[in-house]
Amino acid sequence: MNATESLRHSDAHSPLLEVRGLEKHFSLSGDFLEQLRFDKGRLVRRQEYVHAINGVDLTIQRGEALCVVGESGCGKSTVARTVMGLLKPSAGEVRYDGERIDDLSTRSLLPYRRRMQMIFQNPYASLNPRMTIQETLEEPIRLHHPQWSRQAIRDKVHEVMISVGVAPDWGNRYGHEFSGGQRQRIAIARALAVDPEFIVADEPISALDVSIQAQVLNLLMEARQERHLTYLFITHDLAVVEHFGTRVAVMYLGRVCEIADTATLFAHPRHPYTKALMSAIPRLEDDRPQHIRLEGEVPTPVHLPSGCVFHGRCPHANERCRREIPSLITTDNGAQVACHAIEEDRIS
């Protein structure tokens, strides 16, 4: 399982992952009978949906670390899960290495599952409490390489345990015997055990303590260099994004409002929401820039606002913003922004 093999059926220039017009709605109304309501003496069927993502386009090139940031409920985790095939999209498509994968059966998805692995937020929940660490790490290898000998599997487990900094002789312990940081290392080892090329990490460090966060972030960066990994990194922490990401997508209420190279985004945030989000980070410096106050709170994704999803809190919103959904436009510095005000040159 080396890099040349995984690059076999594609040229290195096509994007590794392409997401087009992705939508995901979750029904809130339960089954058919629960949807029936009496309304003015008549029986009507009513369905309500949570619009978790509404038309997201993303492209990830090989070797990139694309960070998706946003506040809770903006749909960033749903994007990660839909990309991984853990959720079926309501509309749109996911292409991995040129092949469409969102409509594949579980069986035909299996080869892709080896190439893309996921790391979850909560290492207390993502390790099976009844399996030893050795069993946890052997399981994915057995599944994806049924022809491997026991010794080969054991060697592989040994190798990944060393590479994430977990002593190999801890293999016969159980997950609960480890601290949060150690557990997250084991979860990373499990993802790396099948030599993936693409890692989806959903808030992998937010459940950890400050001094442990740096350790795990370093580990993820080492793995990226040594194993030539491509990342889709979901987080709400902009300081981590600035450090880790090569590109950033900012999401708000199920839509991408800005995508740019990390350096560009942090030097010149364009979208009003991005600006507000960046001004809200508590900084260590004495001279804090004036925090941009947003009116109100994030609307629920059940009743989406018309037009631009951000117009209710945006200081620059006008009639067009309330009516028409902005699409991503490329600005002069290469950033893509979805904002009417920027398109019309009302704001810089």
Binding site: V210, A214, Q215, M221, A239, V240, F244
Partner: peptide, 21 residues
């Protein structure tokens, strides 16, 4: 603790972690 913060390092470089827990 201070040095381990991502904003204390140049983007993309290794963070100054505290070993152990």
């Amino acid at each position: 603790l201070m040095n381990a913060l991502p904003q204390m390092a140049t983007p993309g470089s290794r963070l100054n972690q505290i070993p152990g827990s």
